[in-house]
Simulated assay, not measured.
Amino acid sequence: MESRRLGRTGRDVGVVGLGTWQIGGGWTAVGDDDAVALVHAALERGVTLLDTADVYGDGRSEQLVARALADVPTGERPFVATKAGRRADPFEAAQYTPDNLRGWVQRSLGNLRVERLDLVQLHCPPPTVYGDDGVYDALDALVEEGLLAAYGVSVETCEEALTAIARPGIATVQIILNAFRRKPIEQVLPAAAAAGVGVLARVPLASGLLTGKFDESTTFGEDDHRHFNRDGAVFDVGETFSGVPYELGLRAAAEVGAVAAGRGASTATFALRWVLDQPGVTCVIPGASSAAQVRSNVAAAQLEPLTADELAAVERVYDEHLRDVVHHRW
């Protein structure tokens, strides 16, 4: 698999990683053994970056990642990125204190069974946190102590990303980027590239819409965020189907699928390749609930880059169906 430098971490990672929100919870349930098996399947296919968070299943995702990596020799371990901050209670900027940041980091160290975290990302905190000098001072202190190798941010909006990228200690920025969420291409990707900040593209398949496998009759379990968060009742609606109304997303995904079919690729593989072809992207981090999905995701790294005509066709889908709905929001 092609590798790219992950910003200021100084580490090279494969261009297709593995997001592990699914194995924590909030999606279709994945059993412990199946979760470990799909992590192993990812490693066997060249995945070298795993993305998790302390709130995915209240630590379950981190713990399952640790279990899956228990027998992996130190020199062969993948880069593990986790996140902190969504455990703040109440969820407000005042909770991002040095003591709380240290506590969240120490909990992740225990869950992941390591002495130093490869990367901790502030997990979509309240917007004012991105400009808080004290937060960055606390993170710098944790790096100096050796508890963190690097830190970055996960963001909801392009404005938040640009605020963070301007900080000298930020190694990476994680942002939603897919064929249904193009706004980061305009400023965020160029700014990150100029600053030497790595870009992790999350929700690359728009919560599954861009797999082309859903239709009007598809149902989701009551504990699946694609069921309970369509109106943003629990967290930012932009995280669910990229903020695109479901029925509209189905129509747009069908058109992207028709373009993909022209080169004999699945909609999902084609959509992931689209993300990888955006200048400035380091790694795309699709989730998976099975080893088969892992294989489909990794296939994007072997797909030839999209042609100018294919890129233009995807842009037309966005402009005709989605731009007015999502472009002004995030």
Rank of each mutant, 00 (worst) to 15 (best):
G24M: 06
T219D: 10
V36P: 01
L200Y: 03
G57Y: 03
C124N: 15
E145R: 15
L248A: 12
L147Y: 03
F270A: 03
V55G: 05
T240H: 04
V203N: 13
D99H: 08
D140G: 07
V237A: 15
R167A: 07
V15Q: 13
A301K: 06
C158R: 14
F79L: 13
C124A: 15
G196S: 06
T218E: 10
V298D: 06
V47L: 11
V153Y: 00
D223T: 14
A258F: 00
V298C: 06
P168T: 12
R226E: 08
L250K: 12
P98L: 09
H321F: 04
L142E: 06
D215E: 06
G7C: 09
L64K: 09
Q174M: 15
L147E: 05
A164Q: 08
F180P: 12
G19F: 08
G75V: 09
G14F: 11
G19A: 10
A53N: 05
T218Y: 03
H321E: 12
R116L: 01
A194V: 10
T97N: 04
Y96P: 05
F180N: 08
P125K: 02
A161T: 08
L148I: 00
E145V: 07
A254H: 11
P78F: 09
G238V: 00
T74W: 10
F270M: 14
R230C: 12
Q302N: 10
S3H: 13
R226F: 01
L64H: 07
P73H: 03
V65K: 12
L177S: 11
V135F: 06
L101R: 10
A301W: 06
H227V: 02
T240Y: 00
V275T: 13
V298H: 09
Q63D: 07
Y130D: 05
A195G: 10
D58S: 11
T157P: 11
V155W: 00
G131D: 13
N100S: 14
V325Y: 01
P305W: 08
Q95F: 02
G152L: 06
E92C: 10
L109I: 01
V275G: 10
L311P: 00
G198W: 01
D319H: 05
S207R: 02
T74E: 15
V36S: 10
D319N: 12
S296R: 14
E62H: 08
T269D: 07
G131H: 01
F79M: 02
D231Q: 14
L250F: 09
D223F: 01
I23D: 05
G134P: 02
T267N: 11
R11G: 00
Y246R: 05
I170C: 13
V317F: 01
Y246P: 02
A195R: 13
A53Y: 06
R8E: 09
E304T: 14
D133R: 14
G257L: 05
